[in-house]
């Protein structure tokens, strides 16, 4: 979905499908999703574990293991090139340089036997052909930028001498090293405690404003989404089921799944006797039902939902708010049921 009246997107994903082979059969983990990322925009991908949000990020970077994985797309356009059709060599140029990634686990995402300084410096030498001295100066500036206190004296320290939050800052510094146009942040705050989380989010927001980069922020935490995102894409079982600006989504959640997700946020400002949960579980990848994949857990499910897969369509032609739902998507159910029966 491209929002109208936005400048040319930095990253434009058309019909991305990522499949995995299980016992000889290919099953899609991401099912033909499309989205565009505007310059300096933060798009949040939200969904339960296993809904395909991390796979989307890995697919964009071409990091899906080739042994049992397969990425197909009509196009992953970045800087005028289709990433889906680049050679391995060309793709390595893009990774860490044009698009970089921040991982979920800061405790294990740094090499334990190499110094922090070395690891930040390496990316700069590799992609920007800087001399070691230049790269070290630049790396120090980066560590200052991500607010690591007394970066200079800690430059030669090893990861085990850093706390989780500090390591995540180092990871962010590495991701930012080559001034990428797009950052893919895969649950960068999930492993951190709440106060550190807030600091890291504030830092990311600040850096985004400073550098003008765009960000795809993968999370299952809707509170984080509200704080950070410009637009939100809600994913379920490999599909984008709803995409809208963050204000619109929170004000007018339309897909029953989005609605249920929002209801499930525990709120401290209201008395509730029990926590809302969504009954049932995501169907396993090798046993996806026909029709809408949320139908089995949906309170609004009709016959047509179990028979036909709904399309992702804007609520009205002018709106960037799109929903994949027969019931809520403004479809003429009577006519559709008629069609399905004929």
């Amino acid at each position: 979905m491209t929002a109208p009246a936005t400048p040319a997107p930095v990253l434009d994903v058309w019909n991305l499908t990522t499949s995995f082979r299980i016992e000889g059969t290919w099953y899609p983990a991401v099912r033909g999703i499309s989205f565009a990322l505007a310059p300096n925009e933060t798009l949040a991908l939200v969904g339960e574990s296993g809904c395909g949000k991390s796979m989307t990020a890995l697919s964009i970077l071409g990091l899906v293991p080739t042994a049992n994985g397969r990425v197909e797309a009509d196009g992953i356009m970045f800087e005028g090139r289709d990433l889906a059709r680049l050679s391995d060599e060309e793709m390595r140029e893009v990774r860490g340089n044009g698009i970089s990634m921040i991982f979920q686990e800061p405790m294990t995402s740094l090499n334990p036997v190499l110094t922090i300084g070395f690891q930040v410096t390496e990316a700069l030498i590799y992609h920007q052909n800087l001399s070691r001295a230049e790269a070290e100066r630049e790396a120090l500036a980066l560590l200052d930028l991500v607010k690591i206190p007394s970066a200079k004296s800690r430059f030669r320290e090893y990861p085990h001498q850093f706390s989780g939050g500090m390591r995540q800052r180092v990871m962010i510094a590495m991701a930012l090293a080559c001034r990428p146009k797009v950052i893919l942040a895969d649950e960068p705050t999930t492993a951190l405690d709440v106060t550190i989380q807030a600091q890291i989010l504030a830092l990311l927001n600040e850096l985004k404003a400073e550098t003008g980069m765009s960000m795809i922020f993968i999370t299952h935490n809707l509170g984080v989404v509200a704080a950070l995102a410009d637009r939100v894409a809600v994913m379920y079982a490999g599909d984008i089921v709803e995409i809208a600006s963050v204000g619109e989504l929170f004000a007018r959640p339309t897909h029953p799944y989005t609605e249920a997700l929002l209801r499930s946020i525990p709120r401290s400002d209201r008395d509730t006797a029990e926590l809302h949960t969504i009954p049932g579980a995501v169907p396993p990848i090798h046993r996806m039902p026909k029709g809408c994949r949320f139908a089995a857990r949906c309170p609004l499910a009709q016959d047509i939902c179990r028979a036909m897969d709904p399309p992702l369509e804007p609520l009205d032609p002018e709106s960037p708010h799109a929903v994949r739902c027969w019931v809520r998507g403004g479809h003429d159910l009577a006519a559709l049921t008629e069609d399905a029966n004929v």
Partner: peptide, 14 residues
């Protein structure tokens, strides 16, 4: 299989 090797790949290292 460690995360930091995946992170290396994400940085484009050969």
């Amino acid at each position: 299989e460690r995360d930091y090797i995946e992170a290396c790949r994400a940085l484009g290292y050969g």
